[in-house]
Amino acid sequence: MAGKDSDQVRTMRSPLGRVRGLGAARSGVAHWWAQRLTALALVPLSLWFIGSIIALAGADQAAAAHWAGHTVNAVLLLCLVLATFYHMQLGLQVVIEDYIHTEPSRLAALLATKSVVMLLALAALISVLRLAL
């Protein structure tokens, strides 16, 4: 007996046939790993950064620029910026993929996020390089 529900399926393909090829298709593990590795890197980097901005509280531009211009600080700042924005892009991507289900809006949101993240990351990187070089 075909019930009312069967009207919703208008294809002869099996459910397995339809979902095959969708999903991570073995590339998802790279995303997963990158998120964990950047997270691991961000543990010491964030703690160092919190300590640094406490030390710089109330400092003027000259003092901040002098601090950021020090090679060790500049290298760590570059690491912090790269790991932060990479980790942030990976995280926002998951949030968007979880909540936006229609393909055009999802693609638009993903591209917009990546563009903004790229612009912010480059602005931060260039600034650190200007201070360091």
Binding site: Q61, A68, L120, A124, L131
Partner: peptide, 12 residues
């Protein structure tokens, strides 16, 4: 991160 970027850009 907007705050972080603003701070770095301003310092530079």
């Amino acid at each position: 991160t907007l705050l972080l970027v603003a701070w770095l850009v301003a310092a530079a």
